[in-house]
Amino acid sequence: MSQTAVADSDTGLPLRELARRHGLGVAGRLPTLPEYTGKLWAYRHFIAYYANAKVTSSLGKTRLGSLWQVLTPLINAAVYYVIFGKILDTSRGIPNFVAYLCTGVFIFGFTQSVVQSGIQAISGNLGLIRALHFPRAALPLALTMVEVRNMFASIIVLMAIVLGFGEPLTLEWLLVVPIFLLQSIFNAGLAMAAARLGSKVADFKQLVPFIMRFWLYGSAVLYPVTKFQSALQDHPIALKIVEANPLLVFIDLMRHALLEEVPLASTPWLLWAEAIGWTLFVGIGGYIYFWRGEKGYGRG
């Protein structure tokens, strides 16, 4: 005999019916959002361990090892100090320009590196995805954790720089904690969205550097925010759009917390409202967007 009947020969039932009768689930079915969240929570140890392992393995071959976590932001800041603080000696109407600049560079760099690694979260781990079961959101989340850890070191360095350039230590510095938290959640959402986009369209990865460059110039990292106000005087709507940019909001808030005299895009209260709004929208939106694609991640 070379063929067995397609339907179950004993009962003559269609296969679909047979599966239903015995309560079999569809393999690779999309779980509901609460189910998925529960699964993800059960994998929290995996996420933490994976993030940890990623840091170790990325620095494993270097001689200085984890010292790089502190050295990288320090060198980064040194570059900007040499160019803008020493050579060009620009202040552009801002009292403490180097501290102002470093805050912007560090906060922007946090989101930038999360997007860059998030875009490859799925496409760079296909081996793992095709071999094992776990909620795929664990991957972009773990990569976000890696950057959160790096940013933690960066913030300490940043604080030292700001203090070193003569800013006083005030109670407002405590605001760094909620800002950091909001930006981390915002970044996690962004990483998940980028992961799905990157898994579907590989071309997207080529565009990311340009998108990030555009975003950098739109976030008033290298020059004061007031520059937009004077440049876009006659275009109030365009100005509103530029000033609603989430990264500009996070950078402004951080500058407001760490520095004494800074020009802001708008009042602190409005900035906080915008930051919370963006965090909720991108955090939840990115998660749902990623979850909707869960079934297709093994393909490719």
């Binding site: 079999l24 689930g25 393999a27 690779g28 095709r130 079961h133 093994g298 393909r299």
Partner: peptide, 22 residues
């Protein structure tokens, strides 16, 4: 891989009890 739910099926369906492991 498809039985394990690691590769999506294009058409038709695969049903399994519990979570098959590869």
């Amino acid at each position: 891989r498809a039985i394990a739910g690691l590769l999506p099926v294009e058409k038709g369906a695969i049903f399994a009890s519990g979570q098959p492991s590869l």
